[in-house]
Design a protein around this nucleic acid. Sequence first.
DNA 1: TGCAAGCATTTTGTATACAGTATAAAAAAT
DNA 2: ATTTTTTATACTGTATACAAAATGCTTGCA
Lengths: 227, 227
Amino acid sequence: MASEMVEANGRRTVATISRQSLHGEIVTRLRDMIIEGDLQPGERIYETQLGEELGVSRTPLREALKFLASEGLVELVPSRGAVVKRFSAKDVEDMLIVLRSLEMLAGRIACEVASDEGIARLRSLHDAMVKHYKAAERLEYYKVNQQIHTGIVALANNAPLAEVHGLLQSRVKRIRFIGHEGAERWAGAVAEHETIIAALEARDAETLARELDTHLANGWERVKSVV
Amino acid sequence: MASEMVEANGRRTVATISRQSLHGEIVTRLRDMIIEGDLQPGERIYETQLGEELGVSRTPLREALKFLASEGLVELVPSRGAVVKRFSAKDVEDMLIVLRSLEMLAGRIACEVASDEGIARLRSLHDAMVKHYKAAERLEYYKVNQQIHTGIVALANNAPLAEVHGLLQSRVKRIRFIGHEGAERWAGAVAEHETIIAALEARDAETLARELDTHLANGWERVKSVV
DNA sequence: TGCAAGCATTTTGTATACAGTATAAAAAAT
DNA sequence: ATTTTTTATACTGTATACAAAATGCTTGCA
């Protein structure tokens, strides 16, 4: 969400007065709860109960659930309400296949249209990630890692592409985060990232696509045991 | 709505009782209205008014709008309700780029995993389409055409892939339908389809991908004037 | 005549109340 | 003892009512 930014320290935020509606806030709240595992897959959602927990009435909560249902994070069973969606191993593999294809596409486009500043920004993200890796800060590493992948997609300057990528990414986020890899695999992932960034800086579309391909294929290998 | 099928003539309907919830039906109804142009892009949606037209109250209608907002067909402006989303020419081009990539991916996978029956089904769809083409039945042609593209994706047996493809497809449907091409272009499209089906029957992934690539690139050429 | 401020109307946002349906438990019958 | 039927309860689905916000219009004033 990153919106509220209510005048802590007395300073007013000029940008985007944060006029989000209640159901909008509930959407992001629930999305986080699902990704972080507060709401477990397969768990049934009781509207009155959850509404009381969040301090909202059923109406905006239900609206938020409809939104998330369209995103594919919850499932609506007629007359039985919402259930947190559970993904099979095949589902996850299928999502990663699509994600891989999307990122490859984004990478190719980015080589053509990305600004030098944009690429430089990604390089510094990469450097930060390496720093977290060396410090063995898994959570921070994971977050920056996500930012890099999202960043590559963003460089392609194709809104629908970024959108569907984000859609699938949010679904596998939880699983990816759980999937703690061993030291040697982790090192491999970092090395792959280095070649990816280098290919992007060289604007070498084919190399970039190939590297993303292997990186994300390996990504599936890294998580498939935990699904 | 169009569901109950209550035991008229005493006989009970065994199949699928159509237990869709009201908001679910409204979603499909509104989606059709948007695609078919009953609700124009940029048009503001007044909840009470539309609710009366559809004979439903505001609550399920609002839930349906949230769902469609997540699909990207309407936009929710805080405190000002829903507006039918308008897509720029770049948006449409970007969507078609992604669609192209997704169909190519689907085609490659389909060559490996599709059943012979599935491919045969697509061939007969293609034959039907050619028949409509020769009869100059544009609407019927268009519908079968869509089914073929959706069918190729379905053959890949990858649910998330089919889902995101369908998501983008629904957005460009309206524009594609509007885009009436001239006779020679139409003939070209039919010829491309023939090579696509042939490549699929031969399970020749690379040829199929290449043909889909050109076909969908030409598709953008065909519609870009009308966007 | 132009502008601004205030009021009225319209529309969205949220809550609550009521109706319908599914599940589970208990009672009755085989 | 097991199965079926009944009944109670809890939850979802929908409608309506109320509150807040935004827009447009009217009126007053310079």
